Measured scan of single mutants.
Amino acid sequence: RPLSCPNHEGKTMEFYCEACETAMCGECRAGEHREHGTVLLRDV
Rank of each mutant, 00 (worst) to 15 (best):
E14D: 10
F15R: 01
E32M: 07
R42W: 05
N7L: 06
L3M: 15
H8L: 03
V39W: 06
E14L: 07
G26Q: 10
A30K: 04
R29C: 07
N7K: 15
A23E: 15
P6E: 13
C25K: 01
H36W: 02
V39M: 15
E9G: 09
E14Y: 02
S4R: 04
A30Q: 15
L41E: 10
S4E: 05
C20F: 00
G37T: 15
A23M: 08
T38E: 12
L41D: 06
N7G: 10
E27M: 07
F15K: 03
P6H: 14
T12A: 07
N7V: 13
L3Q: 12
Y16Q: 04
R1N: 15
L40R: 12
N7S: 12
R29G: 09
L3H: 12
R42F: 01
N7W: 06
G31Y: 05
C17E: 02
E21M: 03
E21K: 15
H36N: 01
E9W: 06
R29K: 06
R29A: 14
E32V: 11
E27A: 10
Y16A: 03
A23L: 05
F15C: 04
C25P: 03
V44G: 12
C28M: 01
H33W: 00
F15M: 03
E35M: 05
G26W: 14
T12Q: 11
L40P: 14
E21Q: 07
D43G: 07
C5T: 00
G26M: 07
E27K: 07
C20T: 04
N7C: 03
R29Y: 07
G10N: 12
D43N: 11
R34T: 14
G31V: 08
H36Q: 01
E21C: 07
G10E: 11
K11P: 04
M24I: 15
L40E: 13
L3V: 14
V39D: 15
M13A: 09
M13Q: 13
V39G: 12
P2N: 15
L40F: 07
R29P: 06
H36E: 05
R34D: 10
L3F: 15
R34C: 09
G10L: 07
E32P: 11
V44C: 10
E27N: 10
D43Q: 00
C5Y: 00
C5Q: 00
R29M: 10
A23F: 10
G37Y: 15
E14K: 04
T38R: 05
L41N: 11
Y16H: 09
G31R: 09
E18P: 12
G10A: 08
E9I: 12
K11D: 08
